[in-house]
Nucleic acid binder design. Structure first.
Lengths: 115, 115
DNA sequence: TTGACATATTCCGATACAGGAATATATTAG
DNA sequence: CTAATATATTCCTGTATCGGAATATGTCAA
């Protein structure tokens, strides 16, 4: 086996820097494939392939306009990542809280020894 | 080439579900390798290998205690992911704002036609 | 020192990915 | 209908994994 399939979950889809670049450029708004190719200086097939992966996990949606295909960001699909990360944000905050308590204790001890 | 090295950035390190499980179990506090092996029912070499990857991107730190090695979560290293995600949180909020504006407009038009 | 325990590393096979090149499939224009 | 444009797909190669098994390293205990 290798890494779990890139098409199966958002974490893997976003792990690739090129795909993050595509999402970044789409955050400015809907764009055609050719526009992304120009903006990011990637080959057209690569862009199409990455868009396919992003599409399969729902991070982008697509709409046809003539012979163009306009891709749009679906930020709501980042929610699993956000939720997962949120737990660690809290862990970080708790550590900061503990640090606060520690500093407070230090100050109180100082005050007691001062008086 | 394949995907950019898993050892080089946090996004790739976290893309693997097994490694997220390890981080999850470490969020309860410092744990020895053997404890992780029991808790997650993974093989000891796999745990050690995943810990190595996590260690190389700084997501965990290690401290020796006798013949044990205690690993600890370093949640601050998730910051790059958090920062990247934050931009999309804003995009989502902006979409909600636009929705708000749209609904406000609707109400105002209704009010004008009512009077 | 010898042996038991805890962890890390190496070797292996299978898989799956990225990226390039070539090609296929629309869709519009003339 | 034919050519041109826009995008998607397929074929290929090299490489980077993951996971298992075996082994190496390190540390304590008697």
């Amino acid at each position: 086996m290798a890494r779990s399939s890139t098409t199966s979950d958002v974490f893997n889809a976003v792990a690739e820097a090129r795909r993050r670049e595509i999402l970044d450029t789409l955050s400015a708004g809907e764009k055609a494939v050719g526009t992304i190719v120009e903006d990011l200086a990637m080959s057209q097939p690569q862009v199409s392939k990455h868009l396919r992966v992003l599409s399969e996990v729902g991070l982008v949606s697509c709409r046809a306009e003539g012979r163009r295909r306009l891709y749009r960001l679906e930020p709501a699909r980042l929610r699993p990542m956000h939720d997962w990360l949120a737990r660690y944000e809290q862990a970080r905050d708790e550590r900061l809280d503990r640090m606060d308590d520690y500093l407070k204790d230090l100050r109180e001890k100082e005050n007691r020894s001062d008086s």
